[in-house]
Computed example of a mutant assay.
Amino acid sequence: MEFLPENNDLVAIGVSVLSGSLVGLEREYKNKSAGFRTIVLICLGATAFTIASRYGVGSDDRIAANIITGIGFIGAGVIFKDKFSVMGLTTAAVIWMVAGIGMAAGIGYYGLSLSLSVITVVVLSVFNKVEGAMERLFLTRTLFIVFQDMDVNNLEELKRQMDKHRIKYVRKTVSKRARRLSVVFELTADRKTLQQFNNEMMNLSYVEEFYYNS
């Protein structure tokens, strides 16, 4: 039997594309790994599966659960973890949220779908500025340092430098790396203070290399 989409299904698809586009444009503007096309397709895919579930018998909950599971795999693919930090969590959360927006459109809650899209864009845009303002006052970074040799006096001298700048620090690890002393600190200060400390470290002869992780 030939299947033709109902008018409500076409409306749901249109709302899904529009809702996904609102969030996708924000992600594309910020040059994220999940950009405009990816976000729209995720939203549209969730809508399509939700619409399909309405035509099954007793399958709604199972298909909805499988959408959540499948989105979990996609979200995990954009998360990157290095030695000290995790990146991509916000993008993964956006993918998860967009799937929910698509499901809302597929069920027929068009106003909810569009409203959630607008709220998501506001959270990603406005709250990002709030985070930036907070970082200017209070910022925590993980600092990885490799000294030129195994002289622990250099470590003590670096601590005095941090005390001079009134930087709060917690020593996480100390290790030997290629006949050099390696130390990991967690630093807490305002952004300007950390930048000044960073500039000073560039001129310290006993520091071989260093880098930060958020």
Rank of each mutant, 00 (worst) to 15 (best):
I79E: 01
L116M: 15
G102M: 07
T120Q: 11
S59I: 05
T38V: 11
K129M: 13
L137H: 13
E26N: 15
F197E: 04
I79P: 06
M103R: 07
N31G: 03
G111Q: 10
E208R: 15
Q196R: 15
I13Q: 02
T91R: 05
Y110L: 07
N66Y: 15
M87T: 09
G45R: 03
V17W: 01
A12F: 02
A133G: 00
E28Q: 15
S53A: 14
S21E: 00
Y206T: 08
I107C: 03
Y55D: 10
D163H: 06
V23W: 04
A64C: 00
N203W: 00
M202H: 12
T142D: 09
N66W: 01
I13M: 14
P5C: 00
R191Q: 14
G111R: 06
W96D: 12
R180T: 09
L139D: 07
Y169V: 10
E200P: 01
R136I: 01
L4R: 04
V122Q: 04
S117K: 06
G58D: 05
K172Q: 12
T173L: 07
K81E: 05
V174G: 01
K168T: 03
I68S: 03
V78P: 02
E156C: 00
S19C: 09
A93K: 03
F80Q: 01
S59R: 02
G77L: 10
S117F: 06
M97S: 15
G77C: 11
K83Y: 05
